[in-house]
Every structure is written in structure tokens, then in C-alpha cells.
Amino acid sequence: MSAEGGSAKRFVLLGTDYVYPRTTNKILRAFLHSKGVKDEDIMEEYTPFGHSDYQTIIANIKKFASAGKKTAVVSTINGDSNVPFYKELGNAGLKATDVPVVAFSVGEEELRGVDTKPLLGHLAAWNYFMTIKNPVNAAFIKKYQDWAKKNNVPNADTVVTNDPMEATYVGIHMWAQAVEKAKSTDTDKVIAAMGGQTFKAPSGFTLTMDKTNHHLHKPVYIGEVKADGQFNVVWKTKEPIRAQPWSPFIAGNESKQGL
């Protein structure tokens, strides 16, 4: 919405029809309302899993975007449907500079099966990108690539790391630390030792596990797709932010902000 982000005034919330996109878009809509965006400037649309014919939806987005206000698409399209979606988007002549698409479920691994030409400049939001430059990440990537080669993972020479991998990597290490602290693998004891654990993550920050809700405090990155299927970080938070399991923008969640 800022000038730097493209000053978008209208928003298309496009997702696959299941819990995650529905909830995400519910929060997004509430957030946009709080910023003064009206309902008529929000288009919400869902497609079934594996949907592959995006002709009509792209035509609708075009129509929606042509009303004279800068439009952005927030995509929570899941998995396989992304390739047909972006292909159609590119072929229909909608470039990232006209109608940028921000995706929440497209990362490095997903882009391995994709012709990235039509995706250039579209955005993704994650807590980690493979392109982040720091020694921890370099070591993490190296370790994974060596492991893939050694274990004959298919196409081992092109394996990529992504946010879920980093999250798992961090998670397992934190668990190990908690086990060491608790001196036991007993579930309850480990849970008790878990809160407040810290770990120097490949994302370039030292992550902390929240003491109350056991979610991680993580940085947020926004990246633009490059031609090689990697992401160019164009925006990031200065430091990790606290995870809030209950959105402050949804009515009824006020009492849960401390959680």
C-alpha cells in the first residue's frame, strides 16, 4: 500500500478453498478495513484444489484492475494450481509492474517445477529465503546440498532450501536444546524447557521461542522472483517480530492479545 510497495488501492484476495486461505483472507480483509479500504475495493475468490483453468479468473482480475486504481493480488493459491495461474497471468499480459501478485505459499521449492519467465517481479512473503547472505545460511545450504548429493536425492545438483526446511531445521535444534536443558526426552519436561529457547537461524537472526504461546519470533522478508527461481529480498523487518496467534484485526480477539 505504501508508495514503495506500489501504492496499491484495490486488492484481489485469491486462494485455494481451504482453511489457511480462508482464515488469512479474513484477517487481511479486517486489516484492509482498518486501513480504510472499502469492501468494493476487495475481491475475494476461491478455487478448488488442483484447479488449472484460470482464464475466467484472470479476466475478472483484469476487469477489477482496470477501474483506474492500482491493484495488487494476494495469492494463497496452493501447490499445483500456481503454475497454470502464473502462466495464464503472463500470457494474458499482466506483468508484475501492472498487477503485482504477492504469494504466501510459493517458495524456492515450488518454483523448481516452474517456468519462471512469467513470474518475474512477483512477490512472496516468507521468514527465510535461500538468497539471504550470512555465514549461517551459507553453511546451512552447503550442508543440505552435500546431504542431497550423498543420498542421491533426485536432481541433487539443483536442490534448494526454503522456509519450511529452515523452520524444521530450527525446530529440531531447539528441541534438542530443550532436551539438553530438561535432561530428559519426556514430553512434558521438554515442553516446559522449550519456551525461551534461542537459536541462531539461517535467516540471519537469533530466533526466540515465545514463553507463553511457544511460537517463534521470526523476521519477515518480502522477496521478488528472479529469473533463476530465487528471490530478491526487497523488504525485511529490522528484527524478528513476536508471533501473535490471534489477529488483533479481528473483532473478539482483544482479550487474547497477551497470548
Partner: peptide
């Protein structure tokens, strides 16, 4: 899924009027 690219001559589309593009 594996990656099959459109050849460059199959990318883009014919712009009809306004926002109608035939890919």
C-alpha cells in the same frame, strides 16, 4: 511436477480490444 516451458512463440497473446487478450 516437472517443468515444461512454453516456447517463446507460444508466450504472450494477441491483444484484442481493451483487456481481452487471446493467449
Amino acid at each position: 511436477n516437472v517443468q515444461v516451458d512454453n516456447p517463446s512463440w507460444m508466450s504472450g497473446g494477441i491483444a484484442l480490444l481493451g483487456d481481452t487478450v487471446l493467449p
